[in-house]
Amino acid sequence: MCWVCEAYGDPEVENGRWYLNPKNHSRNMYKIKKPDQKAAAYGSDPEAQSGRNIGEIMQFRFTDPDKFNQLIKEANAMKGSGPFQIGQVIPIQEAYKVVEMSYPVASMSCICRIHNRAQEERNEHEYSCTGLGVGMLKWERWPERYKGGVNFMAPDEAKEWLVKWNKKGMVHIIMTFGGSYVGGVCNCDYPDCGMIRNRVDYGIETGCLKSHWVAKIDYDLCTGCGVCVQRCQFGAIKFEVTLDKTNIDQLKCFGCGLCETGCPTNAIELIDRESLPGLREVW
C-alpha cells in the first residue's frame, strides 16, 4: 500500500487517497509560528523548511559518497516520518479534483526552473507551478519563492491551465509543505524539476513517489506512432521494432498519464497500480 495514504489517507474518502482527503488541505494544517508556541512538527516555517533537508543530504555527494548513500537509504526508510517534503505524481484527472477542493488556487513561477536554469516566469502566461491553500495568501512574504507574484485562479481556469502544461508534456506532482499539508501541484519535467531529478538520478524517493496508476497499452489500438515515447519523462516507453508497436515497462512507469493524454488513438489507459500484484509495493 502507498505509505502516504496509510499515514494520511481516510479509507472512507476517495479510496483513501491522501491528497484527496480534505483534512490535508485544511487551514489548520498550515503551521505558522505563533508567539509562545513551540515550532510545529516539521518546523515552524513550512515553506522555508521544505527542500532544505534534501539539500543537506546533497552536500555529501562529493565530500563523503558513502555517507550520501547511507543518508538516502535512511531518508527512504523513514517513509514520510522524517522532515522531508512529500511529493507524488498524479495524473491530470486527479489534479482536477485537487484544484476543485483546494482554496485558493494560484499559478506562480517554478522554483526549480529558477534554480536549475535561471528561467524567469514573470506573469500568468509564463507561470508553470500551482500553489494551493492558505499559504498562497501570504506569498508576498517570500518574494524569492514567488518571484514575479502569483495569479489566483477559479477551479475551471485552473483546469484549463493544467491542460496547457499537460499538452506541453509536464508531469503533475502533488507536494506537501510541512507534514501532510498539501501546498501545491507542480508541473515538472526532467532534468529541471529537482524532485524528478533527485529520484531518477539519485534514488531519493520521498519527493517523487509513483502515482496510484500505471499505464497499459491496448496493442489492438496502438498504431506505433511514437507520440507517447516522446512524452514519457521517465524513459518507461520504447518503440518495439519486433512488434511494430510501443511497449511500456510498467516497473519503470510513474503513472503520470502523459502518454494517455497524448495518444491519438486512445490506446493507453491508466489502471490501478494496486490491481497488479507485482506493483503493489512499487511507489
Binding site: 529558477i114 534554480h115 536549475n116 536554469r117 535561471a118 528561467q119 508576498e140 512574504r141 518574494p143 524569492e144 518571484k147 514575479g148 532534468p191 529541471d192 531529478r197
Partner: peptide
C-alpha cells in the same frame, strides 16, 4: 545555466531580503 546539456548548474539567491525581490 541554459546551455548545459547535462543541467549541471544551479543558481540561488544569497542575499534574500524579506519582502523584496533580489
Amino acid at each position: 545555466l541554459q546551455a548545459c546539456p547535462q543541467a549541471v548548474f544551479l543558481v540561488t539567491a544569497v542575499k534574500v531580503e524579506r519582502g523584496k525581490e533580489t
